[in-house]
Nucleic acid binder design. Structure first.
Length: 831
RNA sequence: GCCGAAGUGGCGGAACUGGCAUACGCGCGCGACUCAAAAUCGCGUUCCUUCGGGAUUGUGGGUUCGAGUCCCACCUUCGGCACCA
């Protein structure tokens, strides 16, 4: 759709001006800014720095609304901060490794590398059309050897300090993508793969893990960062901290069983133990006569998918092992069962079952005729009978039937029980986390190879720093088979041990791409550094990131991993400070016009590129800022984009039409009104850019445009006040519509570039008014409005309000009981 | 079930610490321009009204001179977690 021409206004004396054709100006200014290095950021200790970071895009091929919505409002804020005098670094790069590249490459039968780098080329071009103020000289691509050399270097650092380790474990496996996944990449109740939505299965595999659990406690501390509350809650819940005790039960087979409980006060009611079927002690505890039943149950559990197994409403199943343990607090002999409702991966993989006070244990006990023994009396409960209880009683209360501790009240029961077991060496206070270590091995091709060599003599040997990167070979069969493609390469894995020089083999897995993106903000500091992952001088100046913007869907993935990574590297002396990103803000999502997620299958995809072609990048930027609450997002609206398109055409025409109006004097009152509108706009636009309230940034600019139009009606064209207001309008609009502002600034003959001008300051005297309108309320309802001088006394305001004819009529002779005066706002007459 | 976010005109959404609800824009209506239409410009636009006024921020209570905003209970929608001991 071509931009439409605005004819001269009806007075017909308006100068005929060029129409606004964004296509003619946007590319030109983009090229100029880049040629001039306008946004190239350099360390300059004489100026305050600002590290503004937007989540790097994945190399999926095309920019969609999500990119525009995340990036262009952020860019406006970066531009604003630059005009405010900050030395802003606003870098960009590409998250280029990963499964989608491989899967797309498989579909199209082209090499993942070819596909990825072709996408980067086209995405670079598309990104440039946004008119964003990125420092392209800092571009980093995670699939470049000069990048992943350092990803591997970080792995080696973690390995050397015991934070990366390999272990055999039941892990989540995506049967479609043929690779393991981190726990965080398994989504929802259906337990599907984050990428392809295929239900995951469990496999026992030897895999590399990062010890994120060592940082569980510290990751719960958000006191020094300004992150959105929902993200803090999601991470807190994911980490899942529980306080309680670990208690040891001796067994008749010899090996003790350790359990974790949050309710040590119920220990005396533990009438049996339950182990996860995969628990290592199961074989040892099982008596010969129970062997067939136990083996059958374990087999059955293994065959079941996790979804079947973890369905909460499922009937409890399990079998008796034949083994017995001893309850350490009362010396009673309790049977040991196995059941699939106990998870190997949480706590110790074993529980003490207290059927009277835990609903799951209760259901299990009733299903198998096990004893239910109440040992807690919650307030208001006189007695509980284990034989007749219909459900568990999970509340806290006074201990009963608990030996020496009988009678301990609710508020002391847990502590008393912990002290009791600690004194007898049967247990200790403990904190347990739901968080598990981060599984980073991937049996896929398109990732950074894990830099470990296996030597028959020296075991796991990290690749020495001077031999990094371990290059990913191009000549592989990269289609997935379930084995790592690197393993099937004829020569790649064969190498020599860095310690002894004897033949050895490389690890043939690659790393989770979330490892690559855990430190990209550091690579931006010096993307071509050959000596180190980043230049410490750049680090000391720019870090930490001051503002980070991106999607909330990474709450328990990237946003948690990158915090862990930073803290681990801090402890290794690589980074400084406790947190990598001080302020985080999440944008919402742009949906299709039907309110559904845009997708080809729904046929509701609107291409942002087409809108840019039709209306210009500036209009799309302004539309995205104006039409939504940025943190919320919402459906794309064809009608609403017209609103900002009109505004931009009006602004364009107004500026050019009034550009060389002959100088004259105007009505002082009208001039004062214009000046007040101008400074109110400066105040509002500044404050709202600061706080990410982008919709009111644009509405403030529109109101200012309306005030200019009114001023023109009032005959102010040609006055100093009018010219200043026009120029300041352009400065205020520059962060939002950078091309249009630059073009008009240029046409007004102002010095290049508008983006290097200082941000306008609010003059408080311009905001001052002589008269204010007070609302006059009677019993809280507005009945009248009165004009009073600005500094009017309360007494005068009251008198003026009571003098109002409307008020007199409503009062009808009654005397007000009370009159409340809120200076500058209202008078409320209470009858 | 647990945790979190959000409910304001026909629509997107404003409303800073409790003080004039509905800014700004879309849409719609009327008018101007036009042979006509589009575009553009101007005016109007929360709802009801007997034109006095009355009602209104998901629902019901409460605090207050005054509540979209604070408190209590509930409803709806969306997101996350879920046999986590």
């Amino acid at each position: 759709m071509p931009a439409r021409q605005a004819p001269p206004a009806k007075e017909a004396v308006r100068k005929q001006v060029d129409r606004y054709v964004p296509a003619e100006i946007e590319a030109r200014w983009q090229a100029r800014w880049e040629a001039d290095g306008l946004y190239t950021a350099r360390v300059d200790p004489s100026r305050p720095k600002f590290y503004f970071l937007t989540m790097l895009p994945y190399t999926s091929g095309n920019l969609h609304w999500g990119h525009w919505f995340a990036m262009t409002p952020s860019d406006s804020r970066a531009r604003y901060l630059r005009m405010r005098g900050y030395n802003v670094v606003y870098p960009i790069g590409f998250d280029a490794f990963g499964l989608p590249a491989e899967n797309a490459a498989i579909q199209r039968n082209i090499h993942p590398k070819t596909w990825t780098y072709a996408n980067i080329d086209s995405m670079r071009r598309q990104l440039r059309t946004m008119g964003a103020s990125w420092d392209w000289s800092r571009e980093a691509i995670s699939a470049d050897p000069e990048y992943y050399r350092w990803t591997q270097w970080f792995f080696v650092q973690l390995f050397r300090h015991g934070l990366a380790y390999k272990k055999m474990a039941p892990v989540d496996w995506c049967p479609k993508d043929n690779t393991t996944l981190a726990r965080e990449q398994v989504i929802g109740e259906e337990r599907v793969c984050e990428r392809c939505k295929t239900p995951v299965i469990k496999k026992d595999l030897e895999q590399w893990f990062f010890r994120i659990t060592a940082y569980a406690e510290e990751l719960l501390d958000f006191t020094h960062i300004d992150w959105p509350e929902p993200i803090r809650h999601l991470q807190t819940n994911w980490i899942g901290r529980s306080e309680g005790a670990r208690v040891t039960f001796q067994t008749e087979a010899g090996d003790p069983i350790e359990v974790f409980t949050t309710r040590p006060d119920t220990l005396w009611g533990a009438t049996f133990l339950v182990l996860a079927p995969e628990h290592p002690l199961v074989a040892k505890l099982t008596t010969p006569d129970r062997q067939p039943a136990v083996a059958a149950y374990v087999q059955q559990t293994l065959r079941q998918s996790d979804i079947q197994r973890e369905a909460a409403d499922k009937q409890k199943t399990g079998v008796f092992t034949g083994g017995f343990a001893v309850n350490p607090v009362n010396g009673e002999r309790v049977p040991v069962w196995i059941a699939d409702y106990v998870l190997l991966t949480y706590g110790t993989g074993a529980i003490m079952a207290v059927p009277a006070h835990d609903q799951r244990d209760f259901e299990f006990a009733r299903a198998f005729g096990l004893e239910v023994r109440p040992v807690i009396l919650p307030p208001g409960v006189d007695a509980l009978d284990g034989r007749t209880m219909a459900q568990a009683e999970p509340g806290y209360g006074t201990m009963v039937g608990s030996g020496e501790l009988t009678g301990t009240p609710a508020d002391r029961a847990v502590d008393a029980a912990i002290q009791y077991v600690e004194a007898r060496g049967a247990g200790r206070r403990a904190v347990n986390y739901r968080l598990r270590d981060w599984l980073i091995s991937r049996q896929r091709y398109w990732g950074a190879p894990i830099p470990i060599i296996y030597c028959p003599e020296h075991g796991q040997v990290p690749v020495p720093d001077d031999q990094l990167p371990v290059l990913l070979p191009d000549d592989v069969e990269w289609r997935p088979t379930g084995e790592s493609p690197l393993k099937l390469h004829p020569t790649w894995k064969h190498t020599t041990c860095p310690v002894c020089g004897q033949p050895a083999e490389r690890d043939t897995d690659t790393m989770d791409t979330f490892m690559c993106s855990s430190w990209y903000h550091l690579r931006y500091l010096s993307p071509h550094d050959q000596q180190a992952p980043f230049d410490p001088r750049e680090y000391d100046y720019w870090m930490p990131v001051d503002t980070y913007t991106g999607g909330a869907e990474h709450a328990t993935l990237h946003l948690m991993y990158t915090r862990f990574f930073h803290k681990a590297m801090r402890d290794l002396g690589v980074t400084r400070g406790d947190e990598p990103m001080l302020q985080l803000r999440n944008q919402g999502q742009i949906l299709g016009p039907d309110g559904q997620r845009m997708s080809k299958s729904r046929g509701n995809v609107i291409d942002p590129g087409e809108q840019v072609l039709a209306h210009g990048a500036d209009a799309v930027r302004a539309y995205l800022m104006f039409g939504y609450r940025w943190q919320e997002g919402g459906p794309y609206s064809v009608e609403n984009i017209q609103g900002v398109v009109r505004w931009l055409h009006r602004l364009w025409a107004l500026v050019l039409e009034s550009a060389d109006a002959p100088a004259r004097e105007g009505d002082p009152a009208a001039a004062r009104r214009l000046r007040r509108s101008l400074h109110e706009a400066i105040r509002q636009v500044s404050a709202d850019l600061e706080t990410f309230e982008f919709n009111t940034v644009v509405s403030g600019l529109m109101e200012l445009s309306n005030a200019l139009a009114q001023a023109r009606e009032d005959g102010l064209e040609g006055t100093t006040e009018f010219r200043q207001a026009v120029e300041t309008s352009l400065l205020l609009a520059a962060p939002v519509v950078p091309h249009l502002a630059e073009e008009l600034w240029h046409r007004l003959g102002k010095p290049y570039s508008i983006h290097q001008q200082p941000w306008p300051a609010v003059d408080p005297s311009a905001l001052a008014v002589e008269e204010v309108t007070l609302a006059v309320q009677i019993d809280g309802k507005v009945r009248d409005r009165i004009q009073v001088p600005v500094g009017v006394s309360e007494e005068e305001a009251r008198r003026a309000a009571l003098a109002s004819a409307v008020v007199q009529r409503h009062l009808a002779g009654r005397a007000p009981r009370q009159v409340i005066v809120v200076p500058g706002r209202l008078v409320n007459i209470v009858t």
